[in-house]
Nucleic acid binder design. Structure first.
Lengths: 201, 201
DNA sequence: TAAATTAACGAACGGTCGTTCGGATAATTA
DNA sequence: TAATTATCCGAACGACCGTTCGTTAATTTA
């Protein structure tokens, strides 16, 4: 077996554990989910889990790191492409909402903070989040400037970005595919509301 | 001592416990906060706490019930007053955001779901939330109809309401008084963004 | 003042927690 | 095939969990 295959195998085993752990933790919370619970849903023994991570806190970290890295990779090229500001904004929202709805459990964990982690892990995740937030702030800032050509303070643009975050990140509080349509429809609605307000033309 | 005074005294003791418990639980999570932790921050003994509630789950329920009842009481008269639709919407947002920022810890708990509670308590809270949500949906629906006079489906209005919820409820993820202004300023920003989009006139 | 109720406490219980350890089995490599 | 490494496990550890018990101090009521 090649080195890459070994890595894939390991990642595949770990990925499966991260997926199933995230699903259960999204329901029961970090402290509410025991290592024994995780052993059961992953079909492994309690002690066998510790082959993949050194403790429960690291598992939580890995779920977060994987998620934010994926999210960031998905949208980081939006700034490089030749796009109009509103196309960039639309792309950001669509990426985020689609990823969110496809990974509801992980996102629930990712949006619940890093209080349980040590300083270093917490900071690593903070940097990932910060990178993503700055990406969003740039895209929102460019869009607003393209529409009004007056200058707005960083604080105001940041606050607007957080409001957009809110509309997108609150999805897990209400979304059901049956009642609220596809990810694309939700993304379009958020884009429309954020850019033009709640009243359709 | 009169009956009412007795009730006040009891509520005052309980209220103090609910406040301090909510603060700690907002940091550590429900399962992450032990009864011994709560005994310490409330300046009481471990067993002494059980005089005010019968178990930890009931404590969580009481924090939620008190919060949602206050929130609902604050805005339930908006429909009765003679107000223009946009004034009602503005009032709802201001009430919600102000309460939110004044009670950040409780709101953090209130927005984290009822997974830890039994069916009956969970349902009691669900009804309170539902009542509040319907209030918001009515106000948002009236506003949208007043601006466009075409008819919109309930689903669309509900989705818009949830987007507004998102902007308001995500506050705990970013708000600091130093960087982001007063509750009123945040409320105005949310109202403006929700009604007219992100680009100031 | 006497009785009754409220508020508070220390100590202990059974149970579950995260983690560790020594060893087994399966897979890969030399 | 032999050596090496990656997976996996049962059993056990000490620590901490929510809760209960019997009792005492403080306050209110009669």
């Amino acid at each position: 077996m090649s080195d890459q295959a070994v890595i894939n195998k390991r990642l595949s085993g770990l990925d499966e554990i991260l997926d199933k752990s995230a699903q259960l933790m999204a329901h029961l919370g970090y402290h509410g989910t025991s290592m024994r619970d995780l052993a059961q849903v992953t079909g492994r023994s309690l002690s066998g889990l510790y082959h993949y991570f050194s403790n429960k806190e690291e598992l939580l970290f890995l779920i977060n790191q994987r998620g934010f890295t994926s999210l960031l990779a998905m949208s980081s090229n939006l700034l490089e492409q030749e796009l109009k500001p509103e196309e960039r904004l639309s792309g950001l929202i669509t990426n985020h909402v689609t990823y969110f709805i496809d990974h509801l459990s992980e996102m629930r964990i990712m949006t619940s903070g890093t209080m349980e982690m040590n300083e270093q892990r917490s900071q690593t995740l903070w940097k990932l989040k910060q990178e993503y937030t700055e990406l969003a702030q740039n895209i929102v800032g460019d869009y607003i400037r393209s529409q009004t050509d007056t200058d707005h303070s960083t604080n105001i643009i940041n606050r607007k970005t957080y409001l957009l975050y809110g509309m997108m990140n609150w999805i897990f509080g209400w979304y059901s595919a049956k009642d609220h349509g596809t990810a694309t429809q939700v993304a379009d609605d958020i884009f429309s509301t954020f850019t033009s307000g709640c009243c359709p033309k």
